[in-house]
Write a protein that binds this DNA or RNA. Structure first.
Ligand SMILES: [Zn+2]
Ligand SMILES: [Zn+2]
Ligand SMILES: [Zn+2]
Ligand SMILES: [Zn+2]
Lengths: 134, 134
DNA sequence: TCTTGACCCTGTAGTTGCTATAGGGTGCAT
DNA sequence: ATGCACCCTATAGCAACTACAGGGTCAAGA
């Protein structure tokens, strides 16, 4: 299987596959006589894993850790659980941050009376003397 | 006012101030005889504006646009409103995306029975044959 | 046989928004 | 004169790709 087909199968750009290889996430495949990369089922499996984990928002470092863990089939999966739960906590934090932001911005927009810039509460609130009471 | 004081006043790193100058967001200040940057009230006001907008999650391009708009005091602020509402929509989208992610991940974690890796539903779900029904 | 076109290769630079060095100069106090 | 805090420029690094530039490979069609 050459890189283009692997890319289509996993909905990944060709450049991204080469990038994963360069950073050691995806093992180097064999080469054809014409120096084309030649992938097999194991590569497809590994890349699918990477992509799914990325879709779930894991960082590449976390993906690397999950891959290492998953390669040791006999050990307990509590380490996997730990990685996953840490990621969940990060997501919760991000959601909370964004909600606070959203509240601020919404409040600001609600005060804009669509007049001249010099009266605009949005611009005013961004100005140097504005105090943010939150 | 030299750069360190401006940095402390606006809770910005010195390097960040120089970076804003380099990308044309903050105008070049005058220099002292010893080639130190010398800032005045206008710079402080502008940097405060930038920082507040960044805190609200606007991108540097959006900040640039807001600054340009705010410099024309007589025009209508509807353009400002447009930028702010677009940003709000982006935030809402991000929150929605993160919530969907969170739901997926939470579901996955709930299925992990803390056994061996080979039985772990998290690892399994990341594998190549896993179908995601969502 | 020659050429076209789709595919592949390497290597490097760009993206966003900073941050962190390295290797110096300035200014003031002791 | 020496220390120290502060400043200067220039460059490289971070995440996680993405986009070239400038080539090589391979199968099909005229
Ligand atoms: Zn408020
Ligand atoms: Zn307004
Ligand atoms: Zn699910
Ligand atoms: Zn498990």
């Amino acid at each position: 299987m050459q890189i283009g087909e692997l890319a289509r199968t996993t909905a990944t750009k060709v450049e991204t596959i080469r990038f994963y290889e360069k950073i050691g996430l995806l093992p180097e495949p064999g080469r054809t006589s014409g120096n084309y990369r030649d992938y097999g089922a194991a590569h497809l499996a590994r890349l699918s894993f990477i992509r799914r984990a990325r879709d779930l928002g894991f960082t590449l470092d976390q993906v690397r850790e999950l891959l290492t863990l998953s390669d040791d089939r006999s050990r307990s999966c509590s380490a996997v659980d730990t990685v996953a739960r840490a990621h969940l906590a990060q997501i919760d934090q991000k959601i909370a941050d964004l909600r606070a932001l959203r509240r601020e911005l919404d409040e600001l927009i609600g005060q804009c009376s669509q007049g001249a810039i010099s009266d605009c509460r949005i611009i005013e609130a961004l100005g140097p003397s504005a105090q943010n009471g939150h």
